[in-house]
Write a protein that binds this DNA or RNA. Structure first.
Length: 553
RNA sequence: AGUCCGAUGGUGUAACGGUAGCACCACAGUUUUUGGUACUGUUUGUCUAGGUUCGAAUCCUGGUCGGACUACCA
Protein backbone atom coordinates (compact mmCIF):
# COMPACT_ATOMS: atom_id res chain seq x y z
CA UNK A 1 0.00 0.00 0.00
CA UNK A 2 3.12 2.15 0.05
CA UNK A 3 2.41 5.41 -1.69
CA UNK A 4 4.52 5.98 -4.77
CA UNK A 5 6.98 8.62 -3.65
CA UNK A 6 9.21 10.54 -5.97
CA UNK A 7 12.94 10.31 -5.40
CA UNK A 8 15.04 13.21 -4.22
CA UNK A 9 17.97 14.20 -6.42
CA UNK A 10 20.49 12.17 -4.44
CA UNK A 11 18.35 9.06 -4.60
CA UNK A 12 18.13 9.59 -8.34
CA UNK A 13 21.91 9.72 -8.58
CA UNK A 14 22.25 6.60 -6.48
CA UNK A 15 19.70 4.65 -8.47
CA UNK A 16 21.41 5.64 -11.68
CA UNK A 17 24.78 4.59 -10.26
CA UNK A 18 23.36 1.24 -9.23
CA UNK A 19 21.81 0.77 -12.66
CA UNK A 20 25.14 1.65 -14.29
CA UNK A 21 27.02 -0.75 -12.08
CA UNK A 22 29.16 1.96 -10.50
CA UNK A 23 31.19 0.40 -7.65
CA UNK A 24 29.30 -2.82 -8.42
CA UNK A 25 26.22 -1.28 -6.84
CA UNK A 26 27.85 -0.86 -3.45
CA UNK A 27 26.59 2.13 -1.44
CA UNK A 28 28.69 3.56 1.38
CA UNK A 29 27.87 6.83 3.12
CA UNK A 30 29.12 8.54 6.25
CA UNK A 31 28.08 11.11 8.80
CA UNK A 32 31.18 13.24 9.51
CA UNK A 33 30.75 15.59 12.49
CA UNK A 34 33.61 17.57 13.97
CA UNK A 35 33.57 16.84 17.72
CA UNK A 36 33.63 20.48 18.73
CA UNK A 37 30.02 21.01 19.80
CA UNK A 38 26.59 19.54 20.18
CA UNK A 39 24.42 18.25 17.37
CA UNK A 40 21.34 20.24 16.40
CA UNK A 41 18.23 19.70 14.28
CA UNK A 42 20.22 20.67 11.18
CA UNK A 43 22.58 17.74 11.79
CA UNK A 44 19.53 15.51 12.16
CA UNK A 45 18.72 16.09 8.51
CA UNK A 46 22.21 14.98 7.49
CA UNK A 47 22.03 11.98 9.81
CA UNK A 48 18.64 10.88 8.49
CA UNK A 49 19.87 11.33 4.93
CA UNK A 50 23.13 9.45 5.25
CA UNK A 51 21.87 6.62 7.43
CA UNK A 52 18.56 6.52 5.59
CA UNK A 53 20.21 6.17 2.19
CA UNK A 54 22.46 3.39 3.40
CA UNK A 55 19.48 1.53 4.78
CA UNK A 56 17.32 2.05 1.71
CA UNK A 57 19.98 0.84 -0.69
CA UNK A 58 21.45 -1.98 1.39
CA UNK A 59 24.59 -0.01 1.99
CA UNK A 60 26.57 1.00 5.03
CA UNK A 61 26.97 4.25 6.88
CA UNK A 62 30.02 5.15 8.94
CA UNK A 63 30.20 7.56 11.81
CA UNK A 64 33.42 9.44 11.21
CA UNK A 65 34.68 12.18 13.44
CA UNK A 66 36.46 14.86 11.48
CA UNK A 67 38.92 15.58 14.24
CA UNK A 68 41.73 17.42 12.51
CA UNK A 69 41.75 20.54 14.67
CA UNK A 70 43.02 19.56 18.13
CA UNK A 71 42.41 22.97 19.67
CA UNK A 72 38.64 22.84 19.37
CA UNK A 73 37.83 19.17 19.80
CA UNK A 74 37.09 17.15 22.90
CA UNK A 75 36.06 13.65 23.87
CA UNK A 76 33.04 15.05 25.69
CA UNK A 77 31.61 16.07 22.33
CA UNK A 78 32.34 12.67 20.82
CA UNK A 79 30.23 11.09 23.53
CA UNK A 80 27.34 13.50 23.19
CA UNK A 81 27.29 13.08 19.42
CA UNK A 82 27.16 9.30 19.70
CA UNK A 83 24.38 9.52 22.25
CA UNK A 84 22.32 11.83 20.05
CA UNK A 85 22.66 9.62 16.97
CA UNK A 86 21.61 6.56 18.94
CA UNK A 87 18.69 8.45 20.42
CA UNK A 88 17.59 9.44 16.92
CA UNK A 89 17.47 5.72 16.20
CA UNK A 90 20.46 5.05 13.97
CA UNK A 91 23.34 2.57 14.20
CA UNK A 92 26.63 3.21 12.46
CA UNK A 93 28.51 0.39 10.79
CA UNK A 94 31.93 1.69 11.84
CA UNK A 95 33.04 4.30 14.34
CA UNK A 96 36.00 5.99 12.71
CA UNK A 97 38.19 9.05 13.18
CA UNK A 98 40.09 11.14 10.69
CA UNK A 99 42.85 11.12 13.29
CA UNK A 100 43.20 7.37 12.69
CA UNK A 101 44.42 8.25 9.22
CA UNK A 102 47.03 10.86 10.14
CA UNK A 103 49.87 8.57 9.05
CA UNK A 104 48.21 7.76 5.73
CA UNK A 105 47.31 11.35 5.08
CA UNK A 106 50.89 12.36 5.83
CA UNK A 107 52.04 9.83 3.24
CA UNK A 108 49.57 11.30 0.76
CA UNK A 109 51.17 14.69 1.32
CA UNK A 110 54.63 13.26 0.75
CA UNK A 111 53.53 11.71 -2.52
CA UNK A 112 52.06 15.04 -3.55
CA UNK A 113 55.41 16.73 -2.84
CA UNK A 114 57.21 14.04 -4.83
CA UNK A 115 54.95 14.78 -7.78
CA UNK A 116 55.83 18.43 -7.51
CA UNK A 117 52.25 19.19 -6.50
CA UNK A 118 52.92 20.64 -3.06
CA UNK A 119 55.47 22.91 -1.43
CA UNK A 120 56.49 24.19 1.95
CA UNK A 121 55.78 27.89 2.37
CA UNK A 122 57.48 30.05 5.01
CA UNK A 123 55.07 32.94 4.50
CA UNK A 124 52.99 34.15 7.41
CA UNK A 125 49.21 33.73 7.45
CA UNK A 126 48.92 37.46 6.70
CA UNK A 127 51.24 37.21 3.73
CA UNK A 128 49.35 34.26 2.33
CA UNK A 129 46.06 36.09 2.73
CA UNK A 130 47.49 39.21 1.12
CA UNK A 131 48.75 37.33 -1.94
CA UNK A 132 45.56 35.34 -2.31
CA UNK A 133 44.03 37.98 -4.59
CA UNK A 134 40.29 38.46 -4.60
CA UNK A 135 37.22 37.37 -6.50
CA UNK A 136 38.20 39.75 -9.31
CA UNK A 137 41.97 39.80 -8.90
CA UNK A 138 44.38 36.92 -9.39
CA UNK A 139 46.73 36.02 -6.56
CA UNK A 140 50.53 36.17 -6.56
CA UNK A 141 52.89 33.24 -6.42
CA UNK A 142 54.66 32.71 -3.16
CA UNK A 143 58.44 33.26 -3.25
CA UNK A 144 58.76 29.72 -1.86
CA UNK A 145 56.66 28.16 -4.59
CA UNK A 146 59.57 26.80 -6.59
CA UNK A 147 61.54 25.04 -3.90
CA UNK A 148 63.03 21.76 -5.02
CA UNK A 149 61.26 18.51 -4.28
CA UNK A 150 64.19 17.44 -2.09
CA UNK A 151 64.05 20.61 -0.02
CA UNK A 152 60.28 20.35 0.35
CA UNK A 153 60.59 16.75 1.46
CA UNK A 154 63.24 17.64 4.03
CA UNK A 155 61.36 20.67 5.37
CA UNK A 156 58.05 18.79 5.59
CA UNK A 157 59.72 16.04 7.60
CA UNK A 158 61.28 18.63 9.87
CA UNK A 159 57.86 20.18 10.34
CA UNK A 160 56.56 16.83 11.48
CA UNK A 161 59.57 16.39 13.76
CA UNK A 162 58.75 19.56 15.62
CA UNK A 163 61.63 21.71 14.47
CA UNK A 164 59.40 24.70 13.85
CA UNK A 165 57.05 26.89 15.82
CA UNK A 166 53.34 27.12 15.12
CA UNK A 167 52.81 29.16 11.97
CA UNK A 168 56.44 29.13 10.87
CA UNK A 169 55.73 26.99 7.84
CA UNK A 170 52.80 25.42 6.06
CA UNK A 171 52.41 22.90 3.28
CA UNK A 172 50.51 24.15 0.27
CA UNK A 173 49.15 22.36 -2.77
CA UNK A 174 50.65 23.80 -5.96
CA UNK A 175 47.70 24.50 -8.21
CA UNK A 176 47.02 27.93 -9.72
CA UNK A 177 47.23 31.30 -8.00
CA UNK A 178 45.01 32.82 -10.69
CA UNK A 179 42.23 30.25 -10.50
CA UNK A 180 38.71 31.71 -10.45
CA UNK A 181 37.93 29.46 -7.51
CA UNK A 182 39.82 30.94 -4.56
CA UNK A 183 40.11 27.53 -2.96
CA UNK A 184 42.31 26.35 -5.79
CA UNK A 185 44.83 29.18 -5.28
CA UNK A 186 47.46 27.01 -3.64
CA UNK A 187 45.41 26.02 -0.59
CA UNK A 188 47.17 25.37 2.69
CA UNK A 189 46.86 21.66 3.44
CA UNK A 190 49.02 21.22 6.55
CA UNK A 191 49.70 23.52 9.45
CA UNK A 192 51.90 23.23 12.50
CA UNK A 193 50.04 23.09 15.81
CA UNK A 194 51.83 22.07 18.95
CA UNK A 195 48.58 21.10 20.59
CA UNK A 196 47.27 18.10 22.48
CA UNK A 197 44.84 16.04 20.44
CA UNK A 198 41.96 14.30 22.19
CA UNK A 199 42.94 10.97 20.64
CA UNK A 200 46.49 11.11 19.31
CA UNK A 201 47.77 13.03 22.32
CA UNK A 202 51.12 14.69 21.61
CA UNK A 203 52.17 12.38 18.82
CA UNK A 204 51.64 15.01 16.16
CA UNK A 205 52.41 18.70 15.89
CA UNK A 206 51.36 18.75 12.25
CA UNK A 207 47.71 18.52 11.29
CA UNK A 208 45.98 18.40 7.88
CA UNK A 209 43.28 20.92 7.07
CA UNK A 210 39.74 19.98 6.14
CA UNK A 211 40.40 19.90 2.41
CA UNK A 212 43.28 17.50 2.82
CA UNK A 213 41.58 15.28 5.37
CA UNK A 214 37.93 14.98 4.53
CA UNK A 215 38.14 13.69 0.98
CA UNK A 216 41.13 11.55 1.84
CA UNK A 217 39.21 9.95 4.68
CA UNK A 218 36.31 9.37 2.32
CA UNK A 219 38.65 7.61 -0.08
CA UNK A 220 40.26 5.50 2.59
CA UNK A 221 36.81 4.33 3.69
CA UNK A 222 35.78 3.92 0.06
CA UNK A 223 32.77 6.16 0.58
CA UNK A 224 30.76 6.04 -2.64
CA UNK A 225 28.52 9.06 -1.99
CA UNK A 226 29.96 11.80 0.16
CA UNK A 227 27.02 14.02 1.01
CA UNK A 228 27.51 17.45 2.52
CA UNK A 229 25.82 20.83 2.68
CA UNK A 230 25.77 23.53 0.02
CA UNK A 231 28.57 25.68 1.42
CA UNK A 232 31.06 22.99 0.44
CA UNK A 233 30.13 23.17 -3.19
CA UNK A 234 33.25 25.24 -4.00
CA UNK A 235 35.38 22.60 -2.37
CA UNK A 236 34.33 19.91 -4.81
CA UNK A 237 36.85 20.78 -7.55
CA UNK A 238 39.60 20.63 -4.93
CA UNK A 239 38.18 17.40 -3.53
CA UNK A 240 38.36 15.90 -7.00
CA UNK A 241 41.79 17.37 -7.74
CA UNK A 242 43.36 15.63 -4.76
CA UNK A 243 41.71 12.33 -5.61
CA UNK A 244 43.06 12.57 -9.13
CA UNK A 245 46.60 13.59 -8.12
CA UNK A 246 46.76 10.92 -5.45
CA UNK A 247 45.14 8.26 -7.58
CA UNK A 248 42.97 7.09 -4.72
CA UNK A 249 39.42 5.75 -4.49
CA UNK A 250 37.13 8.14 -6.35
CA UNK A 251 34.51 9.11 -3.79
CA UNK A 252 32.00 11.58 -5.19
CA UNK A 253 30.75 14.62 -3.33
CA UNK A 254 27.14 15.83 -3.53
CA UNK A 255 25.68 18.86 -1.81
CA UNK A 256 22.21 19.55 -0.42
CA UNK A 257 20.63 22.56 1.32
CA UNK A 258 20.85 22.56 5.09
CA UNK A 259 17.73 22.73 7.22
CA UNK A 260 16.74 26.04 8.76
CA UNK A 261 13.92 26.46 11.25
CA UNK A 262 11.86 29.55 11.99
CA UNK A 263 12.03 31.21 15.42
CA UNK A 264 15.48 29.85 16.23
CA UNK A 265 19.12 30.09 15.24
CA UNK A 266 21.33 27.25 14.13
CA UNK A 267 24.87 28.56 13.94
CA UNK A 268 27.23 27.09 16.47
CA UNK A 269 28.60 30.53 17.21
CA UNK A 270 25.18 31.93 18.11
CA UNK A 271 24.12 28.90 20.12
CA UNK A 272 27.36 29.15 22.06
CA UNK A 273 26.58 32.77 22.89
CA UNK A 274 23.14 31.84 24.19
CA UNK A 275 24.72 29.33 26.54
CA UNK A 276 27.77 31.36 27.59
CA UNK A 277 25.85 34.56 28.19
CA UNK A 278 23.14 32.81 30.17
CA UNK A 279 20.20 33.33 27.87
CA UNK A 280 19.57 29.62 28.25
CA UNK A 281 20.75 27.34 31.01
CA UNK A 282 22.78 24.85 28.96
CA UNK A 283 23.23 23.11 25.63
CA UNK A 284 20.35 20.83 26.50
CA UNK A 285 18.05 23.63 27.60
CA UNK A 286 14.62 22.67 26.21
CA UNK A 287 14.50 25.94 24.29
CA UNK A 288 17.59 25.03 22.27
CA UNK A 289 17.42 23.52 18.76
CA UNK A 290 20.06 20.99 19.80
CA UNK A 291 19.09 17.34 19.74
CA UNK A 292 19.84 17.13 23.45
CA UNK A 293 17.57 20.13 24.06
CA UNK A 294 14.80 18.67 21.97
CA UNK A 295 15.12 15.34 23.73
CA UNK A 296 14.77 17.08 27.08
CA UNK A 297 11.89 19.12 25.74
CA UNK A 298 10.09 15.86 24.99
CA UNK A 299 10.26 15.88 21.20
CA UNK A 300 10.19 12.20 20.24
CA UNK A 301 12.90 10.95 17.84
CA UNK A 302 10.14 9.59 15.59
CA UNK A 303 8.88 13.15 15.14
CA UNK A 304 12.30 14.48 14.19
CA UNK A 305 12.85 11.66 11.73
CA UNK A 306 9.44 12.34 10.28
CA UNK A 307 10.21 16.02 9.94
CA UNK A 308 13.44 15.27 8.07
CA UNK A 309 11.54 12.93 5.82
CA UNK A 310 8.82 15.47 5.19
CA UNK A 311 11.03 18.45 4.36
CA UNK A 312 12.81 16.54 1.63
CA UNK A 313 16.23 17.04 0.11
CA UNK A 314 16.97 19.70 -2.49
CA UNK A 315 19.51 22.36 -3.35
CA UNK A 316 17.53 25.51 -2.70
CA UNK A 317 17.79 27.49 0.50
CA UNK A 318 14.83 26.88 2.77
CA UNK A 319 13.25 27.92 6.02
CA UNK A 320 11.03 25.32 7.64
CA UNK A 321 8.00 26.47 9.60
CA UNK A 322 8.29 25.60 13.25
CA UNK A 323 4.62 24.60 12.98
CA UNK A 324 5.65 21.69 10.76
CA UNK A 325 7.95 20.37 13.49
CA UNK A 326 5.15 20.89 16.01
CA UNK A 327 2.75 19.01 13.77
CA UNK A 328 5.16 16.06 13.62
CA UNK A 329 5.57 16.14 17.39
CA UNK A 330 1.83 16.24 18.08
CA UNK A 331 1.12 13.60 15.46
CA UNK A 332 3.35 11.12 17.24
CA UNK A 333 2.56 12.09 20.82
CA UNK A 334 -1.18 11.93 20.12
CA UNK A 335 -0.82 8.25 19.36
CA UNK A 336 1.40 7.22 22.25
CA UNK A 337 0.78 9.38 25.31
CA UNK A 338 -1.60 8.71 28.15
CA UNK A 339 -4.07 11.46 28.96
CA UNK A 340 -3.98 12.84 32.47
CA UNK A 341 -5.43 15.87 34.25
CA UNK A 342 -3.43 18.77 35.64
CA UNK A 343 -4.73 22.17 36.69
CA UNK A 344 -2.18 24.86 35.91
CA UNK A 345 -4.04 27.98 37.06
CA UNK A 346 -6.48 26.80 39.72
CA UNK A 347 -9.70 28.10 41.12
CA UNK A 348 -11.88 26.09 43.49
CA UNK A 349 -15.15 24.57 42.35
CA UNK A 350 -17.64 23.56 45.06
CA UNK A 351 -20.46 21.14 44.25
CA UNK A 352 -23.01 22.34 46.75
CA UNK A 353 -25.39 19.37 46.54
CA UNK A 354 -22.73 16.64 46.59
CA UNK A 355 -22.46 14.40 49.63
CA UNK A 356 -18.99 12.84 49.97
CA UNK A 357 -19.54 9.28 48.76
CA UNK A 358 -15.97 8.38 47.94
CA UNK A 359 -16.56 8.28 44.19
CA UNK A 360 -13.49 7.10 42.30
CA UNK A 361 -13.70 7.18 38.51
CA UNK A 362 -11.99 4.86 36.08
CA UNK A 363 -10.91 7.08 33.23
CA UNK A 364 -9.46 5.77 29.97
CA UNK A 365 -5.81 6.60 29.43
CA UNK A 366 -5.75 6.95 25.69
CA UNK A 367 -8.72 7.16 23.34
CA UNK A 368 -6.45 6.90 20.27
CA UNK A 369 -4.46 3.85 21.27
CA UNK A 370 -6.42 2.10 24.05
CA UNK A 371 -4.11 1.64 27.01
CA UNK A 372 -6.34 0.75 29.97
CA UNK A 373 -7.79 3.02 32.61
CA UNK A 374 -6.67 4.63 35.82
CA UNK A 375 -8.47 5.55 39.04
CA UNK A 376 -9.14 9.21 39.67
CA UNK A 377 -10.65 10.22 43.02
CA UNK A 378 -13.56 12.66 43.06
CA UNK A 379 -14.98 14.89 45.80
CA UNK A 380 -17.13 17.88 46.67
CA UNK A 381 -14.31 20.37 46.17
CA UNK A 382 -12.29 20.37 42.96
CA UNK A 383 -9.58 22.46 41.35
CA UNK A 384 -10.48 23.63 37.87
CA UNK A 385 -8.78 26.08 35.51
CA UNK A 386 -9.56 29.70 36.28
CA UNK A 387 -10.16 30.29 32.57
CA UNK A 388 -12.93 27.67 32.55
CA UNK A 389 -15.23 30.03 34.47
CA UNK A 390 -16.51 33.40 33.31
CA UNK A 391 -19.18 35.41 35.06
CA UNK A 392 -20.02 37.35 31.89
CA UNK A 393 -19.29 35.06 29.01
CA UNK A 394 -19.46 35.57 25.28
CA UNK A 395 -22.02 33.60 23.27
CA UNK A 396 -19.83 30.71 22.19
CA UNK A 397 -18.27 30.12 25.62
CA UNK A 398 -19.09 26.47 26.34
CA UNK A 399 -17.64 26.34 29.84
CA UNK A 400 -18.84 27.43 33.26
CA UNK A 401 -20.93 30.55 33.42
CA UNK A 402 -24.02 30.99 35.58
CA UNK A 403 -26.83 28.80 34.27
CA UNK A 404 -24.59 26.77 31.95
CA UNK A 405 -23.75 23.08 32.24
CA UNK A 406 -20.51 21.23 31.52
CA UNK A 407 -19.29 17.72 32.05
CA UNK A 408 -16.45 17.12 34.46
CA UNK A 409 -14.31 14.75 32.41
CA UNK A 410 -15.09 11.14 33.28
CA UNK A 411 -17.45 12.16 36.10
CA UNK A 412 -20.71 14.14 36.36
CA UNK A 413 -22.44 16.96 34.56
CA UNK A 414 -22.53 20.06 36.74
CA UNK A 415 -24.58 23.22 36.45
CA UNK A 416 -23.00 26.54 37.32
CA UNK A 417 -24.97 28.43 39.99
CA UNK A 418 -22.66 31.39 40.58
CA UNK A 419 -19.49 32.24 42.42
CA UNK A 420 -18.03 33.78 45.57
CA UNK A 421 -15.56 36.66 45.42
CA UNK A 422 -13.11 38.37 47.73
CA UNK A 423 -13.21 42.07 48.61
CA UNK A 424 -11.29 42.91 45.38
CA UNK A 425 -13.85 41.21 43.22
CA UNK A 426 -11.65 38.20 42.44
CA UNK A 427 -13.42 34.90 42.09
CA UNK A 428 -12.54 32.64 44.99
CA UNK A 429 -15.00 29.81 44.46
CA UNK A 430 -17.21 28.67 41.62
CA UNK A 431 -20.49 27.17 42.84
CA UNK A 432 -22.21 24.29 41.05
CA UNK A 433 -24.81 21.62 41.53
CA UNK A 434 -24.38 18.18 40.01
CA UNK A 435 -26.76 15.79 38.31
CA UNK A 436 -26.44 12.36 40.00
CA UNK A 437 -28.03 10.61 37.01
CA UNK A 438 -25.32 11.97 34.64
CA UNK A 439 -22.63 9.72 36.08
CA UNK A 440 -20.07 8.88 33.43
CA UNK A 441 -20.60 5.43 31.99
CA UNK A 442 -24.26 5.13 32.91
CA UNK A 443 -25.69 8.52 32.14
CA UNK A 444 -29.50 8.43 32.18
CA UNK A 445 -29.95 12.19 32.24
CA UNK A 446 -30.50 12.42 28.51
CA UNK A 447 -28.58 15.68 28.51
CA UNK A 448 -25.83 16.66 26.13
CA UNK A 449 -23.48 19.46 27.04
CA UNK A 450 -21.11 21.34 24.79
CA UNK A 451 -18.20 21.56 27.17
CA UNK A 452 -16.09 19.08 29.05
CA UNK A 453 -13.48 20.32 31.51
CA UNK A 454 -10.70 18.68 33.49
CA UNK A 455 -10.47 18.76 37.28
CA UNK A 456 -8.48 17.59 40.30
CA UNK A 457 -9.98 16.69 43.66
CA UNK A 458 -8.71 19.22 46.20
CA UNK A 459 -8.33 16.57 48.87
CA UNK A 460 -6.33 14.25 46.62
CA UNK A 461 -4.32 16.77 44.60
CA UNK A 462 -0.55 16.46 44.40
CA UNK A 463 1.73 19.18 43.14
CA UNK A 464 4.49 19.49 40.58
CA UNK A 465 6.57 22.21 38.98
CA UNK A 466 5.64 22.97 35.42
CA UNK A 467 7.93 24.68 32.93
CA UNK A 468 6.03 26.05 29.98
CA UNK A 469 8.32 26.47 27.00
CA UNK A 470 7.65 28.50 23.92
CA UNK A 471 9.62 29.58 20.84
CA UNK A 472 13.08 30.96 21.63
CA UNK A 473 12.76 34.05 19.41
CA UNK A 474 10.02 36.54 18.70
CA UNK A 475 10.80 36.75 14.99
CA UNK A 476 10.90 34.10 12.29
CA UNK A 477 14.49 34.65 11.26
CA UNK A 478 16.52 36.34 14.01
CA UNK A 479 19.69 36.19 11.93
CA UNK A 480 18.28 38.37 9.18
CA UNK A 481 16.99 41.11 11.48
CA UNK A 482 18.73 44.42 12.14
CA UNK A 483 21.15 44.54 15.03
CA UNK A 484 22.10 41.82 17.46
CA UNK A 485 20.11 38.59 17.15
CA UNK A 486 19.85 38.43 20.95
CA UNK A 487 17.56 41.46 20.94
CA UNK A 488 14.91 39.21 19.47
CA UNK A 489 14.94 36.57 22.17
CA UNK A 490 11.43 35.79 23.42
CA UNK A 491 11.41 36.64 27.14
CA UNK A 492 8.37 34.42 27.55
CA UNK A 493 10.03 31.34 26.10
CA UNK A 494 10.11 29.93 29.62
CA UNK A 495 7.36 30.40 32.17
CA UNK A 496 7.78 28.51 35.43
CA UNK A 497 4.73 27.47 37.44
CA UNK A 498 6.20 26.36 40.78
CA UNK A 499 3.18 24.47 42.02
CA UNK A 500 0.47 23.09 39.80
CA UNK A 501 -2.09 20.47 40.82
CA UNK A 502 -1.74 17.04 39.31
CA UNK A 503 -3.74 13.87 39.77
CA UNK A 504 -2.28 11.31 42.19
CA UNK A 505 -1.58 8.76 39.43
CA UNK A 506 1.24 11.01 38.20
CA UNK A 507 3.33 10.51 41.29
CA UNK A 508 4.85 7.47 39.63
CA UNK A 509 5.98 9.39 36.55
CA UNK A 510 9.62 8.87 35.58
CA UNK A 511 12.04 11.30 33.90
CA UNK A 512 11.65 11.26 30.15
CA UNK A 513 8.04 10.03 30.19
CA UNK A 514 5.52 11.96 28.13
CA UNK A 515 1.89 12.67 28.92
CA UNK A 516 -0.90 14.70 27.52
CA UNK A 517 -2.30 17.10 30.09
CA UNK A 518 -5.86 17.12 28.82
CA UNK A 519 -6.84 20.30 27.02
CA UNK A 520 -3.44 21.86 27.83
CA UNK A 521 -0.62 20.19 25.95
CA UNK A 522 2.01 17.49 25.92
CA UNK A 523 4.35 17.42 28.88
CA UNK A 524 7.34 15.29 29.74
CA UNK A 525 9.07 14.67 33.03
CA UNK A 526 12.29 16.67 33.20
CA UNK A 527 15.60 15.12 34.15
CA UNK A 528 15.90 17.67 36.96
CA UNK A 529 13.05 15.92 38.79
CA UNK A 530 13.79 14.41 42.20
CA UNK A 531 11.90 11.95 44.37
CA UNK A 532 10.13 14.75 46.21
CA UNK A 533 9.70 17.17 43.33
CA UNK A 534 8.45 16.29 39.88
CA UNK A 535 9.11 18.75 37.08
CA UNK A 536 7.13 18.72 33.84
CA UNK A 537 8.34 20.39 30.66
CA UNK A 538 5.77 21.51 28.17
CA UNK A 539 6.77 19.90 24.90
CA UNK A 540 4.10 21.59 22.84
CA UNK A 541 0.59 22.90 23.42
CA UNK A 542 -2.48 21.32 21.95
CA UNK A 543 -4.01 23.18 19.05
CA UNK A 544 -6.37 25.65 20.60
CA UNK A 545 -9.09 26.93 18.30
CA UNK A 546 -10.87 28.64 21.17
CA UNK A 547 -7.79 30.71 22.01
CA UNK A 548 -7.61 31.64 18.35
CA UNK A 549 -11.28 32.61 18.39
CA UNK A 550 -10.81 34.87 21.43
CA UNK A 551 -7.73 36.47 19.92
CA UNK A 552 -9.78 37.50 16.93
CA UNK A 553 -12.19 39.53 19.07
C1' A B 1 32.97 43.03 -9.82
C1' G B 2 34.44 37.44 -10.75
C1' U B 3 33.13 32.17 -10.15
C1' C B 4 29.58 28.76 -8.60
C1' C B 5 24.55 27.35 -6.88
C1' G B 6 19.46 28.31 -6.85
C1' A B 7 14.31 30.42 -8.10
C1' U B 8 6.84 26.41 -8.28
C1' G B 9 0.84 29.06 -3.17
C1' G B 10 2.37 31.98 3.38
C1' U B 11 6.10 27.39 4.18
C1' G B 12 8.36 22.89 2.32
C1' U B 13 8.32 19.57 -1.72
C1' A B 14 6.58 16.89 -6.50
C1' A B 15 5.48 16.95 -11.76
C1' C B 16 12.00 14.51 -15.86
C1' G B 17 8.15 18.31 -23.16
C1' G B 18 1.57 16.54 -22.46
C1' U B 19 -4.39 17.60 -16.54
C1' A B 20 0.55 22.15 -11.76
C1' G B 21 -0.15 17.37 -7.19
C1' C B 22 1.03 16.33 -1.85
C1' A B 23 2.07 17.94 3.28
C1' C B 24 2.14 21.97 6.87
C1' C B 25 -0.18 26.70 7.83
C1' A B 26 -4.83 29.54 7.32
C1' C B 27 -10.19 29.38 6.81
C1' A B 28 -15.12 26.76 6.90
C1' G B 29 -17.97 22.45 8.22
C1' U B 30 -19.08 17.17 10.35
C1' U B 31 -18.03 13.88 14.47
C1' U B 32 -16.37 14.06 19.55
C1' U B 33 -17.23 13.09 27.48
C1' U B 34 -10.23 16.98 25.32
C1' G B 35 -12.69 23.95 21.73
C1' G B 36 -7.69 17.84 21.14
C1' U B 37 -7.93 13.73 17.54
C1' A B 38 -10.38 12.01 13.07
C1' C B 39 -13.02 13.28 8.58
C1' U B 40 -14.77 16.74 4.54
C1' G B 41 -14.23 21.11 1.94
C1' U B 42 -12.15 26.25 0.59
C1' U B 43 -8.49 30.12 -0.54
C1' U B 44 -3.60 30.85 -2.44
C1' G B 45 1.57 29.21 -6.93
C1' U B 46 5.40 28.12 -11.92
C1' C B 47 10.67 35.40 -10.88
C1' U B 48 10.78 38.18 -15.74
C1' A B 49 11.38 39.05 -21.21
C1' G B 50 12.16 36.62 -25.53
C1' G B 51 12.98 31.95 -28.32
C1' U B 52 12.34 26.46 -29.77
C1' U B 53 7.74 23.36 -30.07
C1' C B 54 1.30 21.22 -32.00
C1' G B 55 2.31 21.81 -26.74
C1' A B 56 7.13 24.70 -21.82
C1' A B 57 7.22 24.83 -14.61
C1' U B 58 10.36 21.61 -17.55
C1' C B 59 14.68 22.92 -23.20
C1' C B 60 17.67 27.61 -25.07
C1' U B 61 19.15 33.01 -24.50
C1' G B 62 19.09 37.64 -21.84
C1' G B 63 17.64 39.99 -17.40
C1' U B 64 16.01 40.22 -12.15
C1' C B 65 16.26 38.42 -7.32
C1' G B 66 18.41 35.24 -3.38
C1' G B 67 22.60 32.45 -1.50
C1' A B 68 27.79 30.71 -1.22
C1' C B 69 33.16 31.78 -1.82
C1' U B 70 38.38 35.86 -0.72
C1' A B 71 40.23 31.07 7.70
C1' C B 72 47.12 28.09 9.05
C1' C B 73 38.04 26.42 11.06
C1' A B 74 35.06 22.34 9.55
Amino acid sequence: MAEERSLNFIEEIIEKDIADGVNAGRIQTRFPPEPNGYLHIGHAKSICLNFGLAKKYNGKCNLRFDDTNPTTEETEYVESIKKDIEWLGFKWDNELYASDYFEKIYDFAVSLIKKGCAYVDDSTAEEIAATKGSTIQPGKNSPFRDRSIEENLRLFEEMRDGKYEDGAKVLRAKIDMAHANLLLRDPVIYRIKHAHHHRTGDKWCLYPLYDFAHGQSDSIEEITHSICTLEFIHHRPLYNWFIEQLGIFPSKQYEFARLNLTYTVMSKRKLLKLVNEGYVSSWDDPRMPTLSGMRRRGYPPEAIRNLCDTVGVAKRENMIDLSLLEFCVREHLNKVTDRVMAVLDPVKLVITNYEETGDVFEIENNPETPNGTRSVPFSKELWIEREDFMEDAPKKFFRLTPGNMVRLKGAYIVKCEGCNKDEHGNVTEVLCTYLPESKSGNDTSGLTVKGTIHWISVAHARTAEVRNYDRLFKVEDPSSEEGDFKEYINPEALQILPSVYIEPSLMKAKPGECYQFMRKGYYCVDTDSTSDKIIFNRTVTLKDTWAKETRKN
